[in-house]
């Protein structure tokens, strides 16, 4: 799975979660860039991302997710393992 495919998948999740089909993510995007992406929505996005890619993040890993690039790297690592 390429980083681009992972990014596309995350984008779909975020668009659905924030009800905004115009959202475009970059590796340096952070939650604060988008209206409605509060800490509560963040949980929904993390859980939906896990389901989407069939992976499970560890408690400590979730804490370390800051930028979208971190999501991508973590999913790539998990899918590659």
């Amino acid at each position: 799975m390429t980083d681009l495919e992972i990014m596309d998948g995350i984008t779909e999740v975020v668009r659905e979660a924030l009800d905004d089909d115009t959202i475009i993510l970059t590796p340096s995007s952070v939650a604060g860039d988008f209206a409605g992406w509060d800490s509560f929505k963040h949980i929904a996005i993390v859980v939906a991302t896990e389901m989407r890619f069939g992976v499970k993040f560890r408690t400590a890993e979730i804490e370390s997710l800051k930028e979208i690039g971190d999501f991508v790297a973590l999913i790539r690592k998990k899918k590659g393992a």
């Binding site: 800490s39 939906a48 389901m51 560890r58 408690t59 979730i62």
Partner: peptide, 16 residues
Amino acid sequence: HDPVLWHRAKIEIAPP
């Protein structure tokens, strides 16, 4: 139930 979410946000019933 996902214990990770309980520890993180006191969410007992998993969002899915």
